[in-house]
Design a protein around this nucleic acid. Structure first.
Lengths: 167, 167
DNA sequence: TTAAACTTTCAGTAATTATTGAAAGTTTAT
DNA sequence: ATAAACTTTCAATAATTACTGAAAGTTTAA
């Protein structure tokens, strides 16, 4: 396999993978493109490479910047702006985990906590509801805590130990 | 808040959460409904409760069964079939992690491995491509391994220890 | 067998989500 | 101040994804 084929395959695979996890195709593909590009790219470059419109490129670049995994940089002597992505996969996953937790997990956890607090009227359906939503709350909360701790901070001794044991 | 309101809130929240993670609304809502129901429900019950068509209910129930988190059961004396969900959240997350790994992560990992193996022609773009896709492969592979080990097997001492430390 | 009770399938349609492209907005150089 | 170079916005449209409903299929009971 040669470079061009491999590159296209990466961009497409990443796009498809993103789609399965609730990220739109163009966004994932722009990220993929920047991720493997040795140099920053202009909006023009991206539009051409991925065959997408200016508006699409603009909107998804902004979204990627809001996720904290793509940066806009100025190149001296150039009028237009250039974009580059987070190249360190550890930092990349840290950032994604952080954002998904903040945007999606935490709001859900808040609701679970709230609704699992209805007064127990003694009926079977209420009892089951409280039991199950509490269990779901605990699960989500534990997952969120672990996710944040593992990916947020610098790897501490326990994480290192764990990684060694799991490798 | 009373039961009915809390119940609707749970079903809707779960549906919205699922959507963000690539699971369709009806599927997530059916799961939510079964998850809090003390008794198994018939297709009729589900259709009525969620106000969806027979076809929709049928297809999503099948999908949930394929994910291994909803079961079809026969009730003696009843002609129609009843459905119930996995009630244990540990088993639920184990199953979801297992399936997402199998269906989505592993195929992606396979591609990453393949494409990061192109021959290095010495150009900067090829070098960067190989470096970055290898890094992504390592990340995905480690994540997959950890995910599977943590959620797949019975909690062993290290996991227990970890959970304690993280709580 | 027959037929009632129930489930599945899938073509058509609806709803949602993503994308375009051009007008409006912004920045920079002169 | 003007205009060229560039970016953003957003209404219109396209593409994708989900849902419906009825016909076909299956199971069960008599």
């Amino acid at each position: 396999m040669e470079f061009k084929e491999a590159k296209d395959k990466f961009i497409n695979t990443w796009g498809a993978f993103g789609t399965l996890w609730g990220i739109n195709k163009a966004m994932a593909q722009i990220h993929a493109l920047l991720f493997i590009s040795p140099d920053p790219l202009s909006m023009e470059d991206i539009m051409e490479e991925l065959d997408i419109s200016r508006g699409n490129a603009s909107m998804n670049l902004r979204a990627l910047m809001e996720w904290g995994i793509v940066y806009k940089i100025g190149v001296t002597g150039e009028r237009k702006e250039f974009f580059t992505s987070e190249k360190d996969v550890t930092e990349l996953s840290r950032q994604i985990a952080k954002e998904r937790s903040r945007r999606e997990l935490q709001p859900t956890i808040r609701v679970l906590k709230e609704i699992s607090n209805i007064t127990d009227d003694g009926t079977a359906k209420t009892k089951e509801f409280i039991k199950q939503t509490k269990a779901m709350y605990d699960l989500a909360d534990t997952a969120d805590t672990m996710m944040n701790r593992i990916v947020n901070q610098e790897q501490n001794w326990i994480t290192k130990t764990l990684v060694k044991l799991f490798k």
